[in-house]
Structures are given as C-alpha cells and as structure tokens.
Amino acid sequence: MILFEFEHENATSAEEAVTRLHEIETETRFLAGGTDLIPNMRIGIAKPAHLVGLGRILREPMTVDGEGWLKVDALTRLAEIEHSDLVTSAAPLLAASAHTVAGNQIRQRATLGGNLCQETRCLYLNQKHDFQFVEPCYKRGGDCCYPFPKNKKEVCWSVYMSDIAPALMAAGAEVTVLGAGGPVRMSIDHLFSGDGLRPLTLNLGEMIRYVHVPPMGKDSAWGYHKSTVRGGLEFGMAVMALTFRLDADRESCKDARIAIGAVNEGPVRLSKTEAAMQGQRLNKKSLTELAEMASAEVNPLPHHGFSKPHLRDNIRVYLRRAMEAALARAQQA
C-alpha cells in the first residue's frame, strides 16, 4: 500500500514517454515493471507526483543481426529473457543472470531496463521510516549516514545490486539511451556513475531503450555466479560475471572482462586482474592466483550484514569456480 497519491498515465511509445517526462512539471518517473519503484514508493524513499507507464508500449521482438549482436527491447520482461532460446544461445550470460533475479513473480513483471535502473540498497534505507531511522539520510535528501556516520554529505555507500548489470558489463554490452535529443548508443560501462546517491548517469527524461549484446565467438568463454544465503529470491551478497577468449592453444587467455556486482555503488570491472589474465595460460593454479588477485582488487562495501573480509573470501572462491566453469565449457565446445 502506497500512502500518498500520484498521477498516472500510459505512454503508447517510448518517444511519447520521453516527451511526456519533459512536459510534466511535477516530479515524474517512468514506470516499467514497477518491482523496484513500487516497493520504494511504499516505504516513501521515492515520492513521484506522476508516473508515466511504459507497459502499453509495444515490445519489439528480440533479434540477432548479421554480425551476431543480440538486440533486446529494454521493456522485455526478465522471464521472457531467461526462457528465450535466442538469448540462451546468443547471450548466455544475459540469460543466466536474468534467471537469478528475485523470484518468478518478480521476473514476470520486471523489465531488463528497469533492472538496470534499479535504486541502490542499504538496510537503513530499504524500510519504512515511520519510527526507525526517521531523520532522512543523505540518500533521502537529509543530513546523515546511518551505517557510516563519518561519511561526508556527497558520499553514500549504498550498494547497486542488479544481477544483470555485471553480466552485461562482462559481455561487453551496449545500451541505447533514448532522451529528448534522440537515441544515443554507448557502452554499458558508461551507464554507471559509481555514486551511491545517483548511481546512473541517465539524465531526467532519459530511458534505456535497447540493450545490445555482442556475439560470443567460438573461442569465447563465460562464467557467472550470484552468491546468496538461500539460493534464490534475495539480492546477491556478491555477483560475479566474466568472459574471455581462448587462444588457438585452447589454454591461453585473451580479452578477459570481469565485472563484480552487488558490493559497490555500481558494478565494477577488475582491470588489474583482467590485464593479468592477458596471455595467461589458464589452469587450476593460475586461476587460483587470479582469483586471489581479483579478491584483493575488489574493494567491497560491507553490506546487508556481510563483512568486507567475508565478501572478499566469497568472491575469491566463487570467481575462481566461475572461471573454472567458463574454461571447462569453452574447452569442451
């Protein structure tokens, strides 16, 4: 139940939605699946005066172009993505990550674009504030930080917990952002500000219109793991996604991309570890060392009751396992 009233209208096209967002004078938000926004409105951490619904916009079917790029309408529901044969073959990382999001009912409503545009999370933030943590924190426009009281006003260590963002980052995906000036295509890496207060670089009235995933070559490997306590439903304590290519020797690595999610204000690439993988012969020993390096390179925020050392431990083991699985899959192919 949301305890304030707001306007609502449905847009019939993405362009119309963007136009309307600029026309309406009160604070307006796009509403896609609503599985992030509506709970946030319920607890009053988002209080838009007006919603522009995107649910009536005709969704374009997913396609693979001549060069093998998968193009996904950002309004596509996650359930459709996780069960799509096309996505599973063209962008297995995307399918695998969509499969791990929340529970089935959420995946039926949540959209790809909405998943990427989700708010950051923090125990103190994601609850009602009727009688607990009443004074607004920095994120809520106030003047304190509950978990990290020494933080300065411009610093919010809430965590960006999309399961899909790291997967798309590791896959080298691009997004088309639709704004008043028309569509702009860019690397997904540029979508994230790394700022907990405003985690996305999107401006007012901009929406993610498409997600483009490059083809996986025959020599390509991918791995994905979402660490949870219960194996489902909840947000990840850490999310790991990676891709690399194998040289002709089927052992040496090139073009590695590793993205870690759910432990910082945005998904992060591990550039140092990626560089170390270049030309590296991958085997149990080297993967152990690389995972060790990755675990040191990542700088997780303690969040949701998980300590920094434990998150490092978790990432060290599961990243190695994800790399091992990726290597085994690629070598079998």
């Binding site: 304030f4 707001f6 009160t26 604070e27 946030n40 951490i45 988002a46 209080k47 838009p48 005066a49 708010e119 920095y138 994120k139 809520r140 426009g141 207060l197 405003r198």
Partner: peptide, 11 residues
C-alpha cells in the same frame, strides 16, 4: 538523491 525536500513539499 531519491527525494529532495522541495519535491516533498510540492507533492
């Protein structure tokens, strides 16, 4: 930021 004080007032 999720909601600034001005926006809360207007809402």
């Amino acid at each position: 930021m999720l909601d600034s004080p001005e926006k809360t007032t207007s809402s």
